[in-house]
């Protein structure tokens, strides 16, 4: 897999991250190195192998549907960089 500048830009936009030119070069070459290494997985035949997401066989975990108080608004908002009343404040998004 070959990583080029356009792909790095695309990944920046997916990640909501902006890099400067030097950083793009550095990150690009490091991602290239690791992806080249990762490509060795292609040697491995995985036909018929099921993709495994959880290591152990557990099924749905149910609990009783009991009403419990959630954390108070003010506790959750205490860390907000910008807040008003019981809301997070963000820049205006609609006209």
């Amino acid at each position: 897999m070959k990583i080029d500048g356009d792909l790095i830009k695309y990944l920046e936009s997916l990640a909501r991250i902006e890099l400067n030119e030097d950083e793009e070069k550095k990150v690009g070459s490091e991602i290239q190195d690791i992806l080249t290494y990762i490509d060795m997985l292609n040697e491995l035949n995985t036909d018929g192998v099921e993709a495994m997401s959880h290591s152990f066989p557990i099924t749905n975990v149910f609990r009783k549907d009991e009403v419990k108080p959630s954390a108070p608004n003010e506790d959750i908002l205490a860390n907000a960089p910008h807040k008003q009343d019981t809301c997070f404040v963000v820049p205006k998004t609609v006209e």
């Binding site: 792909l7 790095i8 695309y10 990944l11 920046e12 997916l14 990640a15 991250i17 890099l19 950083e23 990150v27 490091e30 991602i31 690791i34 992806l35 990762i38 997985l41 491995l44 995985t46 192998v49 099921e50 993709a51 495994m52 997401s53 290591s55």
Partner: peptide
């Protein structure tokens, strides 16, 4: 930042099967 971008790559459309899904199969092995 690098790991977030690499993660976005292996999950992105067109690469998901070749990378992420492949890794989950190797996890099985």
């Amino acid at each position: 930042k690098k790991r977030i971008m690499l993660g976005n790559f292996v999950l992105s459309s067109g690469y998901y099967d070749a990378y992420y899904n492949k890794a989950l199969k190797v996890k099985g092995l």
